[in-house]
Nucleic acid binder design. Sequence first.
DNA 1: ATGGCCGTCAAACATCCGTTTGAATCGGAC
DNA 2: GTCCGATTCAAACGGATGTTTGACGGCCAT
Lengths: 245, 245
Amino acid sequence: MTRTRTQPKPASPPIARKTGKSPDVESSPDTRARLIDAAGEEFAEHGFAKATVRDICARAGANIAAVNYHFRDKETLYLETLRHAHRYSIEHYPHHGGLKPDAPAKDKLRAFVRAFLAKMLDCKRPKWHGRLISREMTEPTPALTLLIEEGVRPQFGALCAIVRELAPSVKGDEMEACAASVIGQALHYHHCNSMIKRLYTERKDGFPFDLEFLTDHITRFSLAAFDGLERGAREKNKNRRTNNS
Amino acid sequence: MTRTRTQPKPASPPIARKTGKSPDVESSPDTRARLIDAAGEEFAEHGFAKATVRDICARAGANIAAVNYHFRDKETLYLETLRHAHRYSIEHYPHHGGLKPDAPAKDKLRAFVRAFLAKMLDCKRPKWHGRLISREMTEPTPALTLLIEEGVRPQFGALCAIVRELAPSVKGDEMEACAASVIGQALHYHHCNSMIKRLYTERKDGFPFDLEFLTDHITRFSLAAFDGLERGAREKNKNRRTNNS
DNA sequence: ATGGCCGTCAAACATCCGTTTGAATCGGAC
DNA sequence: GTCCGATTCAAACGGATGTTTGACGGCCAT
């Protein structure tokens, strides 16, 4: 039980930060960054439980002990990787999609849907970000709180604002359910990706759903729904007025 | 390497069936059934990888070796458990919901949505069925094929038929995307259950989304969308005709 | 040059988990 | 009663995995 490392307590392992030299950069940017990258791919592909530290280190070209040196343990590495993916996500895919706040609500909805789908489906540089985040939704770990408060809640709020513009007569729980309907449509292609692909394996023309097609469909479907809901509310109002008078 | 069991080959382990006495009933109905039940809860709660044979046996009140005796191994137990849940599911929640084939399409849609939600959310007897099946969608195992061919594909086909009735002008990939939109809305509350609940923790009145509310909302939202899509198609047709003539 | 860190490495450790084993137990057939 | 197959059991095996260890080498300030 003799400890030779710098830390006196097992509760505060190395983690190697702030060497005193580079003030703003974390130590060993090389290995540490490569580990996060490799961990992201492994975690996204196999999930937290089945991803092994050995594979992660092998992919990163690092020693097995690297994970426990740079991060405390596998779980901390996971949390840090998730944080990284999440930061990247909210930086590169703003929900307004570059639109001004006074843009037409329809355009804002389309931009939101596109950004949401892109975040999940688009296989840009770090293609594991989406899978990692959605995995956290399906089987939450303690890291879920971070995602919700910083990512989900603001985005959901923004979508609710758009919904209020498009269907002002819908209020309360119904309004939030409408927002959930939009998100649900988009997430479906992410969660059930493997199943949907399997459903279409026999088709000669392959998988027909790309980012453009899906953005188009979901926007049109949702706009049609909002339109119909508003129309229904107007008619109900009319009926009530004629009945009352 | 001496084998004392009944089977000469490791490829065909005991599995204890057809004792010769009870022709239609599998042997050891007690332990075997209890194992499937316990396995269902464990697999649903922790997933295939993290669920342990030891915990399953403990929950079933059986010996550790019971799994390898009654089923070949952990994976076969999983497959058998999934099969059980799946059979129960298609038996107890027919997608037509008891409606006749000539019922109005709107009613059929509502029945479909209700059955779909109930299958996933309703906490009837075996509350782990839904979680198990949806887990298979998110991270498929080789057992996925069974679910798709026997469960998903027929249901999806039935929904497509309803969509064709409600929005006859929508065809091809668009039509299937519409069906996916309906399913996506329903599945959302299942996949993101933990996240949605967390989003609502601060609310004084608790989680507002029960089976009735969700059935109502999703049906209304989707019907409004189909209505709007049809209306849009009619207008486009009208425009084309006036432009052409 | 030297000493003290920091990062890396191979090897081992400790634990957990799926599976196997061989004996013990039970129940019915003869 | 005896035998035989089915079932259960405690114990152990073998492998994988997260983690720790102690040494080695490079780098910089002294």
